[in-house]
Each structure stands twice: as structure tokens, then as C-alpha cells.
Design a protein around this nucleic acid. Structure first.
Lengths: 136, 136
DNA sequence: ATCATATATAGAATAGTTCTAAATTTAGAA
DNA sequence: TTCTAAATTTAGAACTATTCTATATATGAT
């Protein structure tokens, strides 16, 4: 997509989500929503250092938190690292960790059947699944 | 169980696992293997402060790591907290987080049917499940 | 008892993230 | 436009949980 058209589209999405589209936010949202693949805050900062003049680490964290609150991205905490990962897939889904490459793949809930049969008075309001293995 | 008998039993388990049973290790192992319920390192240190003279935080961490290596306890990282939790159940199992109390419950794999049906060239070598909801 | 090794200790260092206070930018009013 | 108040961005300090480092202490084998 042409860069300017992409920016306009992102700006629209930000506004629709109630986020004021500042230059920093448009740049980061563009990276996060078109192209980034499960980046950490560090990955995002690295991208910013290479593609946006003088963006502070605080802005990276502020914006990530803002986009999470706006439900444009999702925070993912996985046990193999202490870094938080950001996911542009915001609907409920699971994750697959490729143990060779360290890469994370999103897994649609339809691809993993999960059926809890717990004692009666336990009510399950959410399920998180991490699969580990070899993806490819 | 009588305290001295309990200590002897713990000492035996440590030896069997190849861990030299020092006073600090016996005390901590006793807490971890008989009575502690998914404690954090901080919980363990707090217990030590109240029940063992002058144990350092480093010893708490060293011993936890040692007992993990010896497969007497397991490290559990869950997404709702940045603190590592230690579990005296060492066989594979899942977890349930009670959202009201914050308490963690172990869930036997037989209580949750998990059936991944991924693309053919993906091989699953491990499954982690966290259920959230109300336990009681 | 001596010696070599293992363990325990206090405190420094680290990683990742959040907080704070000041500077800058913005949108809207005048 | 210019002014102003509020929102945003910034650099760096602070924080949390954990690991590392250097020294002291304890232990078991001789």
C-alpha cells in the first residue's frame, strides 16, 4: 500500500478507537498493525530509532499501553521470556512457540479443542493455551 | 507429622535427589514440599524470616533454583504476575487462577481435554493451559 | 586438626517496565 | 493569528524481581 494512504487508514483507525493520532502514534500504530510480528517493546523502540526521529522509550511504552487500552493491540505474556509481546490480533486466540526459532505463531481457537471438565462449582471465564514444539 | 520425623523424611528426599541436606535446604524444602501453596520467592523469604535465623535472600533463590534442578519443585510463570511461583507438583499439569482470590489451583491434565489439530508439519511437544474464573 | 570444596551471605548489578517532572505540541477560543 | 489550557512527549529517576559477585563460613575427607 502507498505510504500516505496507509497513514490515512491508520489515522482513521486510531480516531475510530478514540486515540488522538499524533505523529508518534501514527508511526507506531503503522508498524504494529501492518508488519510487526509479535514485537517486544524493545523491538518497537528499535524500529522507532531507525524510522522516527528521537522518539523516547517512554513514548513507546505510553503508546503501547494506549493502543492496548483502545483494543487495537493485545498484550501477551508468555513464560519463555520476561518481555511482554504485542499482538495485532485482538480477538481471543492461542499461541504456538517454535522452540527452534523462538518465533510465536497465533493459533485460532478452532484449531485446538479445549474442554475443561472440572468440579461443578468452578466456572471458567477464560482459557489461555501455549503450545510448544516445531512449527515448520 | 512429628517435626523431627518430617525433617528426616525431607532429608532423605533431598539426598535421593542428589541435594546435600544443609540446615537451610531442609528448612526450605520442608516448607515447599509440606504446606506451602504456590509460594513466590518473596513468600518463601517471608516464611524463612519467621522460621529460620538469618537466611539470606540469595540462599532462598539459590535453593529454589537447586530444588527446581533436582526436580523436587517446579517453576511456574503465569501471566497475571511478574513473580515466579513454585509448585510442589512436579508432573505435567495445568493451572486455574481464581480471579476473586488470586489463588492458583493445580489442574490434572485428565480434567482438561486438549486436542490440537494444526497443519501437518507442526509438531506439538508441550502444552500449557491456564484457566481463569471462579474456583469455588 | 587441616585442607579443599561446597554453601551461605550481604550487597551490587541487571533487565524490563513504570513513574515523575519538565518541556513541547496541539486544538480551540479569543 | 495569538493565547491558553490540556494533552502529549521527553529524559532520566525509580522500581520490582531476579541474578551475580566477592567474601565469609561450614562441611567432609584425609
Amino acid at each position: 500500500m502507498k505510504s500516505s494512504a496507509e497513514q490515512a487508514a491508520i489515522e482513521k483507525r486510531l480516531k475510530a478507537a478514540g486515540v488522538r493520532p499524533t505523529a508518534q502514534r501514527i508511526a507506531l500504530a503503522r508498524f504494529l498493525l501492518n508488519g510487526a510480528d509479535h514485537p517486544t517493546a524493545e523491538d518497537v523502540k528499535k524500529w522507532a530509532d531507525e524510522n522516527f526521529p528521537k522518539m523516547s522509550l517512554a513514548t513507546v511504552y505510553n503508546t503501547l499501553a494506549l493502543l492496548v487500552r483502545a483494543k487495537l493491540i493485545k498484550e501477551v505474556k508468555l513464560p519463555h521470556t520476561s518481555r511482554v509481546i504485542y499482538d495485532d490480533r485482538v480477538s481471543a486466540h492461542y499461541h504456538f512457540l517454535d522452540e527452534k526459532s523462538g518465533k510465536i505463531y497465533d493459533v485460532d481457537p478452532s484449531e485446538v479443542e479445549v474442554k475443561p471438565r472440572l468440579k461443578k462449582n468452578a466456572s471458567v471465564r477464560g482459557v489461555e493455551v501455549l503450545l510448544r514444539g516445531r512449527w515448520g
